[in-house]
């Protein structure tokens, strides 16, 4: 039994102009499908990475899982104790008017967990005296530690981390990643780790899902995904990072642009950028079979 199970989960956003403008300009409703038929199982204790270019729906998956959004279609089953989330922006994720002590104490007070703020601050490498300060007195990395302390205060067994290090300097990134894997070992946490940075994901993840335009196009154990990527999109992402897996290959930048999610391409949505696209790709949506969603792979063409 997986700890978390996503079954064909989709999420639409209504991005239509306001009703009156729509009527006056004779415009139809506009629906943006941010997450499309995503299925994913996560087992207790593992770290699943989720990668993909900006706008592909990673944050929406995160928010669906913690219940900030309701799925438009599909089911999310969670059998654990409690989910908490760590956010990307260390400057927006802490209320600037609250003292750190109150920020970390909020889950304790509201959820009634037997945690102690001082102990939590120590666990994430801060001093108990820091509780008296306001968020603006801390650096980005320290703020992310406060965010982690707040998440731990709710005694979660599952942490959804939405680009927790993307806003930090490289040296600080490593410290936060170390802290997170430390905590995982000590507390038996399960992570969904979201990032657009493959190098970061390769450091922390046991399994990795690759998202493109709302869909998971490849899902594989990290070692396998980085050494033998199958989906053309995964290959393109990896080719852009020189020192991961495939040694010796020249670095080639990512080609093309992400299409407008309001008008996604027909068939395989990756086909306008794919070097292996053919007529079938333009017509038929590839099914997700055996960890990959690509006609060419399933046909044995690549």
């Amino acid at each position: 039994m997986p700890l978390l199970k996503l079954e064909r989960v989709s999420r639409d956003f209504d991005v239509s102009p306001p009703w009156l403008n729509r009527v006056l300009d004779h415009e139809p409703r506009r629906i943006l499908r941010a997450v499309d038929q995503v299925s994913l199982d996560i087992d207790k204790g593992e770290t699943v990475g989720l990668v993909g270019e900006s706008g592909c729906g990673k944050s929406t998956v995160a928010r669906l899982i913690v219940g900030l959004y309701a799925p438009t279609e599909g089911r999310i089953e969670y059998r654990g104790r409690r989910l908490q989330m760590i956010f990307q922006d260390p400057y927006a994720s802490l209320n600037p008017r609250w003292r750190v002590h109150d920020i970390v104490a909020e889950p304790i007070r509201f959820l009634g967990t037997p945690q102690k703020v001082e102990e939590l601050l120590r666990q994430v490498g801060l001093s108990p005296d820091d509780g008296e300060k306001y968020p603006h007195e801390f650096s980005g990395g320290q703020r992310q530690r406060i965010s982690i302390a707040r998440a731990l205060a709710g005694e979660p067994d599952f942490l959804v981390c939405d680009e927790p290090t993307s806003a930090l300097d490289v040296s600080v990134q490593a410290q936060i990643l170390n802290l997170m894997s430390d905590l995982q070992r000590r507390l038996g946490l399960t992570y969904l780790f979201i990032s657009h940075n493959l190098a970061v994901v390769s450091q922390v993840a046991d399994r990795v899902g690759v998202m493109y335009l709302g869909r998971i196009v490849e899902l594989a154990p990290a070692a396998q995904l980085f050494s033998r990527p199958r989906h053309p999109y995964t290959r393109m992402l990896l080719d852009a990072v020189p020192d991961l897996g495939m040694s010796g290959r020249p670095r080639t930048p990512v080609r093309g642009e992400v299409p407008n999610p309001l008008a996604p391409p027909s068939g395989c949505t990756f086909h306008p950028r794919c070097p292996h696209a053919n007529e079938r790709c333009r017509r038929e949506v590839p099914a997700f079979i055996d960890g990959v969603a690509c006609h060419a792979v399933l046909e044995g063409r690549i």
Binding site: V66, G67, M85, F87, S93, L94, P96, R97, P107, G154
Partner: peptide, 24 residues
């Protein structure tokens, strides 16, 4: 995101409006 964090903890809209949004 601090408002989202409060929602993840499970705080009600009225509590979030008064204790988180109002001071800002």
């Amino acid at each position: 995101e601090y408002v989202q964090a409060a929602r993840v903890i499970g705080r009600r809209p009225l509590a979030i409006m008064l204790s988180h949004v109002l001071p800002n």
